[in-house]
Each structure stands twice: as structure tokens, then as C-alpha cells.
């Protein structure tokens, strides 16, 4: 599968509280909470780092998880948040202004 790039939408507000990342989509007021692994992906979503590199450096390097499983879980997570307009996904790096 070709690599993908992810960027945080500018239409969201995000806060870490008591160790939890909370995200609100200000366009439709939907609310999300992320666990530790999802937060690591979210924080690394700079629009220029490929998802596979994010998984390798921020997930496999930090958590005891098999690489293929981590990549599959990350892709599912990205698909979920992309569906809600929280993450932007592209098959090429985003221009600098596209990332939050």
C-alpha cells in the first residue's frame, strides 16, 4: 500500500487533560477522546511525515507491538478520524499551511 500523509484539521480544538487527549470538531461539536497510542499518532500528524514512519518511530519504538499490527491499527484510526473530518489524509505531503 502506498504511504499516506496525515495532518490535523484546522477546524478542531484539542486539549490534553489528566493525560487524555480530547478533541472537539468545532464545525459540528462532535467530541473525541484518544488513548495514549492514538495521541502519539495525532501529535506526530504534521502533514509531512509518512504514516509508516510515524508508526515506526512513535509506536513500534515506544510500545510492545508487532509492526504489521501497529500499521493496520494506525490506518484504521486514521480512517476513523478522517471520516469525521478530524484528520486530513493525502498521498503526498501537505503544504506547510495545511497542518494545524
Amino acid at each position: 500500500m502506498p504511504d499516506i500523509y496525515i495532518a490535523r484539521s484546522s477546524a478542531i480544538a484539542a486539549r490534553i487533560l489528566a493525560g487524555e487527549m480530547m478533541i472537539m470538531n468545532s464545525a459540528d461539536s462532535t467530541f473525541f477522546t484518544l488513548n495514549e497510542v492514538a495521541t502519539a499518532i495525532w501529535q506526530a500528524a504534521d502533514g509531512r511525515t509518512p504514516l509508516s514512519q510515524i508508526v515506526r518511530e512513535h509506536i513500534c519504538g515506544q510500545y510492545d507491538v508487532e509492526a504489521g499490527q501497529a500499521q493496520a491499527d494506525a490506518e484504521q484510526f486514521v480512517a476513523d478520524l478522517s471520516h469525521h473530518g478530524i484528520l486530513l489524509v493525502s498521498d503526498r505531503p501537505f503544504a506547510p499551511q495545511a497542518s494545524a
Binding site: 489528566a18 473525541f32 477522546t33 488513548n35 495514549e36 484510526f77 476513523d80 469525521h84
Partner: peptide
């Protein structure tokens, strides 16, 4: 007194 509380789901609306 919220410190240390975590949720397990990856993401949910």
C-alpha cells in the same frame, strides 16, 4: 482529582 484516569478506546465520537 482526575490524575491517572485513562480511557481504553482508541477513538470514539
Amino acid at each position: 482529582l482526575h490524575d491517572g484516569v485513562k480511557q481504553e478506546k482508541l477513538a470514539h465520537a
